[in-house]
Nucleic acid binder design. Structure first.
Lengths: 188, 188, 188, 188
DNA sequence: TGGTAACCGAGACGGTACGTCGGGTCTTGGA
DNA sequence: TCCAAGACCCGACGTACCGTCTCGGTTACCA
């Protein structure tokens, strides 16, 4: 495989590219984001982007992987309702925030367009959080035995995606709480 | 605004365009689909497309509106579990079918990219089905009073979207049935 | 042959491109001349250049064909020496003028790089002048019968090219006159 | 100017570069010849080329200087016609040979593009041969006194360049002989 | 029933970005 | 210190589509 030697890679350029990508994503639509603009903003040749990434999708995936990857912690206060409320409220807030949801939008589009990237998005960005919630659910005595934990976690996050994408309702704290109640009812 | 006179519209061209759009969508990605290709395939000038639609998104939305718009019926056998299973199984099957899910993918991308189209997608394509399910739920004595019907319906469809987009698990009949069980448990 | 329909061609653009090409050729080297710059200067899309020409070489060939193509007249005063002096002095002056020789340089380079263009350069730009001189020589009683007219004309122009390319001496009027004397001596 | 110390120069690399340049010149056009390709073919870093030469023009100039530089001898049999025929026939043959004329083409292009290189090409490659012919002419009693020897030599070589560049006729032995006759007529 | 105004197919146009190529410079590791 | 290797910034390449704009030709309404 004649891919470039990562040892020779210029760290300064790498950082500049990821930073530029995130900046531009905040200023325009994902569809309007261009590799050319990223290169220009980063003060970098286009080739340097294409040398290390397959396209803009891969760049922003990397950019976001870098910023995330730390907030996987999920509290276990012993009170499942409280813990779930915390995480679901946070998630709902993130989707409600136009700034943050721009990146989610970008990733979702890329997820739908490129199978290879979809895998990476799933594994590197989403999985950690989902796994944390799964672990919490598994440890909870309130959860009825026999419940499929994968489905349980989708019961919590799926509706948020749905409402966010289709804009069928507000993404508020009370919505989050209501969602938790429904889920708890399903799982107990 | 002197928008074109629909009376003069060439029905043959309209059909050819919608058909070509669907054909091409089956052959390539939505991202690779171009207005130029649609026009060529339909044997039509590009202007004829731009005269009647805002872009490729609007075209495929119309194309899909035409094919759908009929299967909104939802049976009311008196058995809520059976009725939900029917509709959820059908939905899951649609998402599992690569052919059909290509169009869903296209619509979802457009939904995420263009607010104006998102509204239309929601209202013309999704709402009818969601409304039918809502009506069924509202009429069901099994559903605990006080449950937010909007949330209830999202509890059914949200997880499917989630699993489909993130490819976190299989989209099978037994998955559909399990989902119905969880939802019923939440709503009763 | 799926080449574009010349009937649809935009005359304004065509002119702007040729003019821009000549302008730029006066400002920089032929090697530094780019299609992109021509397009920009002409206020034209690059595609419009590539639609009608094979590259920058073809463009400047066209540009020069347009400006030339008229000065083919050669006087016949009855005095061969005088007539040849006139034409050779003019040619030498053209090669001596840095402005004019820039275009000759460009054409010569292209001639050496691209066989197809070379033919056109020869036939459309050079041949008319050479033919005029040939006709004059053929009509001259001073010229010894049996002289190959093609070689005769090369005897006049070849040395000019040689001196110009290799910069082995000045390109002055007296040089021109000396050359005519030598040629006359050879032909009589 | 701290130009590199030639003492440290790697002779093996130097040779490999010049050889590669000549090889590639035989395989493609001069315009398509790239420094990158030379470096790759020679198994050498690009920097090693740029350290010692100004660009591809300088490299091939050096390559050709090496191969030439020896055939400057011009016979003096006492028979001017015979001697000129020998040298002009050889020159015409060289221009007629596609293999050899490729290098001439390259040099001519570079001569037209780069003044500094033009000087070197003239002095190191062409001058020796021209000087040899000039010496022969100067020594010839057949040549009419007062003839400008510089012009005389151009009268011999100029037409060949002209015919070769413009492809206006065949480059054969009989053409060479005819040219010699014309020149002799001019000089006597 | 002939005029005229809109539609239509075709496709050229000014643009923007694509992904690639090569130029010439700079950096790294090994000899 | 030089070398091979090759990453880097840069700029141009030639292509693909965008959405707009003619261009004739054909409908289909209206006088």
């Amino acid at each position: 495989m004649p891919s470039p030697d990562p040892g020779r890679r210029n760290e300064r350029s790498r950082r500049a590219i990821l930073a530029a990508a995130l900046e531009l994503l905040g200023e325009t639509t994902y569809a309007e984001l261009t590799v050319e603009a990223i290169a220009a903003r980063a003060g970098v040749g286009k080739q340097t982007i294409y040398r290390w990434w397959r396209g803009k999708g891969a760049v922003i995936l990397d950019a976001l992987s870098e910023t995330a990857a730390t907030d996987v912690a999920l509290p276990d206060t012993g009170d499942l309702r409280a813990d779930l409320r915390a995480v679901i409220r946070a998630t709902v807030a993130e989707f409600a925030d136009p700034r943050l949801s721009a990146t989610t939008r970008a990733l979702t589009i890329e997820t739908l367009s490129d199978d290879a990237l979809a895998e990476q998005v799933r594994d590197r960005l989403l999985r950690p959080q989902l796994d944390a919630v799964k672990a919490r659910l598994r440890a909870a005595p309130e959860v009825r035995p026999g419940v499929d934990i994968d489905q349980a976690v989708e019961l919590l996050f799926g509706p948020i995606y749905h409402r966010w994408m289709l804009r069928t309702g507000p993404l508020t704290e009370s919505y989050a709480d209501g969602l938790v109640e429904l889920a708890l009812a399903a799982l107990r």
